[in-house]
Design a protein around this nucleic acid. Structure first.
Lengths: 170, 170
DNA sequence: CGATTTCGTAAGCATAGCATACAATTATGA
DNA sequence: TCATAATTGTATGCTATGCTTACGAAATCG
């Protein structure tokens, strides 16, 4: 009975949520120029990220992969024998964080570590059979997921959005 | 000597990261239309979110507040006696997640819970003195943070970006 | 050569999000 | 009106993520 909580858990109704009588006169921080919290770009990025991540999770429920995992698989496929550090840089992750993800992926036999011939500090990464299968599956899901995002935009807008976002993380 | 790791931990150099010789012929998933991973909007949202969050964390290092916490304080200030469930809906969070944050905030004496007169299931939330102070401080930091984001955009672009992001999470 | 840097690893901590379950309360409908 | 459903706050447990700090091995640089 508390089963399909997820569907409703976030924004169950589109109704105006805050039904308080008094609406507060903004007592404290009326010193600066910031008006409402929804004028903060980061605020919207966070919400958009949350919404995207949620839909992604739903789409990938059966596969049991996260955004990060898929990104890593994808990257390894595009660049076989890429090193962990490079993956971290590409995806802007800590070395430690990167390793945690690689560990999870390895534990599920989606990739294998191998010694690098060039640099004995490194360990090259390669997808296994299962990893390849998973990636192919994942690509299908990503396609579906991307569709869901793109319904909101024209092709031009989508390109523009990517360009704007790129300015933030590049 | 491993101290300022953070500065370098993510994208230490702007150099081309993947210095592998062979660049892989995209063997497996060449079935679909997806080209590179960087044509996926969600991918850029995630990276942008990460970059934003990282800078936010730096800016708020002394205050020790996270985005969520600040958002909650801000919301409570704008709507005194707002209920937890409403906050969750506004910020698109689970009830349980919302409570976790409220708990942390309460443990730091930034807000207090109080019984609601209208609905005895509810507990109204109000900022304490310390909460107000923290919010004022936070607003200063957010201002700085927002500046950092906005340097990349013209006023028009910023407005546009928000509008595009809003389509995703609204 | 020695000093520094890089890479992988590890352990520990905090945040965040989800599912699930329960009790109290309110709303709803037969 | 009364049984049933829905809402609210709470608690617990699990997972994913990200950071810090630390270490040893290997590479690089001066």
């Amino acid at each position: 009975m508390e089963a399909k909580q997820r569907q409703r858990s976030v924004n169950p109704a589109s109704a105006d949520c805050v039904n308080d009588a008094e609406v507060a006169p903004r007592s404290p921080g009326d010193d600066g120029g910031i008006g409402g919290i929804d004028e903060i770009i980061g605020f919207h990025i966070r919400l958009a990220h949350g919404a995207t991540y949620r839909h992604f999770t739903e789409t990938f429920a059966e596969l049991g992969l996260t955004q990060k995992m898929v990104s890593v698989l994808w990257l390894i496929n595009d660049h076989p024998h890429i090193a962990q550090a490079d993956i971290g840089r590409r995806l802007q992750m800590d070395r430690a964080t990167t390793m945690a993800i690689i560990n999870r992926l390895e534990a599920r036999d989606l990739l294998v570590r191998g010694a690098s011939t060039l640099d004995r500090r490194r360990q090259t990464l390669a997808l296994t059979e299962g990893g390849l299968d998973a990636l192919v599956e994942a690509r299908r899901c990503i396609d579906e997921h991307e569709q869901w995002v793109r319904t909101r935009f024209t092709k031009k807008e989508a390109t523009l959005l990517i360009e704007l976002l790129r300015r933030i993380h590049e």
